[in-house]
Design a protein around this nucleic acid. Structure first.
Length: 434
RNA sequence: GUGGGUGUAGCUCAGUUGGUUAGAGCACCAGGUUGUGGCCCUGGGGGCCGUGGGUUCGAGUCCCAUCAUCCACCCCA
């Protein structure tokens, strides 16, 4: 170390013995049962959304930070406080995506609208990143499945989209969800409402909490979202956004309700529902679970008719939503998950020569769509059998000196404990008839 | 960023008013037939008691700091 220089970084030697652990709020997934749920959730999403004419899209995790500043909004919590940003080697400011919509819109503008294709239906599955304090239902790396529909501004499409999530939950067997909807109106309605609300809030400001007073001028709508009793009471008589809607927006909202009813989707109107992302307008919605603790929102979304244009594309209306996979999985208790029932075969040799003989069968067995593993480990037959059992083998193929002399192997059925001798030539076929 | 709870074996946790070599269950390993798993029995390995300071003759136990984790606020999926 250079004398006179303070080293803030521990020397490599100090570091040597220190374990490196996963970053807070980011998890390793390796529990087979948990992963089974993940696959099920992902598979169902593919099925349902592809049946509804959506195509998958995979966008990069890293984007220019400006993308999110311009879409999600640079005064939102997500962008202000929670975004993972970094400078690349050219000092370009990048961000790990905190949500999916912005990237999909960026890609849509880049690859579709540039060729006069102004409609499209996309779905995505992938990790999102937000620098928050982890707690129940909240991680720093979490995963979402989401969909975006570009090209139509029609309430029936809103209902279709909400219906798709509803069906998704239904087919996964998730219960106890409530769907809340609201309308923020078009940009014009929203601006008009902002003014009336602001005027109202000023008159009741003394009754609001500190946070709300701070929020008031920057984003007055969010005051309505405050969960403090005092604020809820103080704003009880606040002008309702639904009263500020233009005729067009109001009709849109009413038609949406009609469509939802005809689809038999239960919903409630929550006039205080305001989403934390700036790009929403008109329809917003959210699915809440009663089993999640404080972070009870499993899915949320809304319409964003001006975002495509804001990001440099033509005026293309759109609507989308995202489902939180971790939250979804945590309320997915009753496993209706179809289990894989392939036969598991454990090849167990007792000496080197037997290993060689069995090894010849390993690939053929796997090629016949069976799950096969060979034991090369140390130990007695007893301990090898223990391993086979722990591995949940259906059959164990045993080969030792005795078998080698006779040119056969012993096949043990682990369930009924029966054993039979099978000649080497017949070994792969032995399992095909099961 | 703010508040509260918790950090002892791979996992779930005991650990008395500070007092010898720190415990249990599960898991793991070995043995109980010289070549046969689960159940049972016996034995075994494995802990700088999160980390760093302090008080004390003596700290897993008390004090301070720090880190991690969980829950809540905030915000969101």
């Amino acid at each position: 170390m250079v004398p006179g220089h303070l080293s803030l970084v521990p020397s490599p030697i100090d570091n040597m013995s220190q374990n490196i652990n996963s970053i807070r709020g980011m998890e390793d997934l390796f529990d087979p049962k948990e992963l089974q749920k993940w696959r099920w959730v992902e598979k169902k999403a593919q099925e349902i959304f592809e049946r509804a004419g959506f195509q998958e899209i995979r966008t990069p995790i890293l984007e220019e930070a400006a993308l999110f500043e311009r879409s999600v909004g640079d005064t939102t919590e997500i962008v202000e406080k929670e975004m993972y940003t970094l400078l690349d080697r050219n000092s370009k400011k990048l961000a790990m995506r905190p949500e999916g919509t912005a990237s999909v819109v960026r890609a849509f503008v880049e690859h579709f609208t540039s060729h006069q294709i102004n409609e499209g239906r996309f779905y995505y599955i992938g990790p999102m990143f937000r620098y928050e304090r982890p707690q129940k239902g909240r991680l720093r790396q979490f995963h979402q499945v989401g969909v975006e529909v570009f090209g139509v501004d029609h309430p029936t499409v809103d209902a279709e989209v909400i219906g798709l999530i509803y069906q998704y939950f239904l087919e996964l067997g998730v219960e106890n969800l409530t769907c809340s909807i609201n309308s923020l109106g078009s940009r014009e309605c929203r601006e008009r409402y902002r003014q009336t609300l602001l005027e109202f809030l000023r008159t009741i400001a003394p009754g609001l909490c500190e946070d709300c007073i701070k929020k008031m001028d920057r984003n007055p709508l969010r005051v309505l979202d405050c969960k403090k009793e005092g604020c809820i009471a103080a704003t009880a008589n606040a002008p309702k956004i639904l009263d500020s809607l233009s005729d067009e927006s109001r009709n849109h909202f009413l038609q949406l309700q009609e469509s939802l009813k005809s689809l038999n989707i239960p919903f409630q109107i929550n006039p205080r529902l305001v989403r934390g992302l700036d790009y929403y307008e008109k329809t917003v919605f959210e699915f809440l679970s009663g089993e999640l603790g404080a972070q009870n929102s499993v899915a949320g979304g809304g319409r964003y008719n001006d975002l495509v244009k804001d990001l440099g594309g033509p005026q293309v209306p759109a609507i989308g939503f995202a489902v939180g996979i971790e939250r979804l999985i945590s309320i997915l208790h009753h496993e209706k998950i179809p289990v894989q029932t392939k036969i598991r075969i454990y090849l167990l040799g007792l000496d080197e020569d037997s290993h060689q003989i069995l090894f010849k069968f390993l690939k053929p067995l796997r090629d016949s769509d069976l799950i096969a593993e060979q034991d090369f480990g140390p130990g007695s037959l007893k301990s090898k059998m223990r391993r086979a059992d722990r591995w949940k083998a259906d059959y164990v193929v045993i080969c030792g000196e005795e078998e080698r002399k006779k040119g056969l192997v012993v096949v043990r059925n682990m369930k009924d404990q029966s054993q039979e001798e099978v000649s080497l030539e017949n070994l792969p076929q032995r399992f095909l008839k099961i």
